[in-house]
Computed example of a mutant assay.
Amino acid sequence: MATQGNTNLSKGIPQIKDAFVIIIKTEWNAHLVDKLEEGCINVLLQNNVKYRSISVPGAVEIPYAIKTYAESTQQSADAFITLGTVIRGGTPHFEYVCNMVTDGILSLNLCLKIPIIFGVLTVNSEEEVIERTGGIHGHKGEEAAITAIKMIALTRSLK
């Protein structure tokens, strides 16, 4: 579980030029995911990073959208940011969805040549999402954008 003040993530954000990020966000729980996206976009804009948002129905569809975009003739991305919420219910469906999306994103992270940032919140309640979109646990959308910028800089430095 995240704790307040457990990161120095926002310190030392590198300046990068000509970066383009694809945000893949879910339509499911849109009232919550939109807050993640808002924080993410604010950080990208503050750091002069161009972006495009693409919506998918749910978290399970995120890896497919990433793979399809990466194989397309669309503008090449420097990173993908995934945004969504999976909230525990009363059935095992939660575990299946969480496993599918995390395994899919991990697999793509290991085979694509650009970073994929995991910004899908897997939580027990809507309240926990609120705590992570500007509440006591920070803003995970902002953190995803900062992570993307840092990973783009790292990737460029290793080429």
Rank of each mutant, 00 (worst) to 15 (best):
T3G: 12
N6V: 14
N6L: 14
N8T: 15
L9W: 07
L9Q: 05
K11D: 14
K11M: 14
G12S: 08
P14F: 10
I16F: 05
K17D: 09
K17W: 08
D18P: 04
D18G: 09
A19L: 03
F20A: 06
V21L: 05
V21W: 00
I22Q: 08
I23R: 01
I24W: 03
K25N: 13
T26N: 12
E27Y: 14
N29W: 09
A30S: 15
H31K: 15
H31W: 11
V33K: 04
K35H: 15
E37K: 03
G39Q: 04
I41C: 04
N42C: 12
V49A: 08
V49L: 02
K50V: 07
Y51R: 05
I54E: 13
S55M: 15
A59V: 08
V60I: 12
V60Y: 11
I62Y: 02
A65C: 11
A65K: 06
T68C: 13
Y69K: 07
Y69S: 07
Y69G: 10
A70S: 09
A70M: 05
A70T: 09
E71L: 12
E71P: 15
S72E: 07
Q75M: 12
S76R: 15
A77C: 09
F80W: 02
T82H: 01
T82D: 04
L83T: 02
G84C: 08
T85P: 10
T85V: 11
V86A: 02
I87P: 05
I87Q: 02
R88N: 13
R88L: 14
R88P: 13
G89Y: 01
G90N: 11
T91E: 09
F94W: 04
E95K: 04
Y96F: 06
V97L: 01
C98R: 01
N99P: 13
N99W: 02
M100Y: 07
T102Y: 01
G104M: 00
I105H: 01
L106S: 09
S107R: 08
L110K: 02
C111Q: 10
C111S: 13
L112E: 03
I114F: 09
I116G: 08
I116Q: 03
I116W: 01
I117F: 00
F118S: 03
G119Q: 03
L121D: 00
E126I: 09
E127T: 15
E127S: 12
E128R: 07
V129L: 07
I130Y: 07
I130E: 15
R132A: 04
G134W: 08
G135D: 13
G135V: 14
G135I: 13
I136F: 12
I136R: 15
H137S: 11
G138T: 04
G138E: 06
H139F: 10
H139E: 07
H139V: 06
G141C: 07
G141R: 00
E143H: 05
E143M: 06
A145K: 00
I146T: 02
I146M: 02
T147Y: 09
A148S: 03
A148L: 01
I149L: 03
M151F: 02
M151D: 00
I152R: 00
L154I: 04
R156M: 02
K159V: 12
K159P: 05
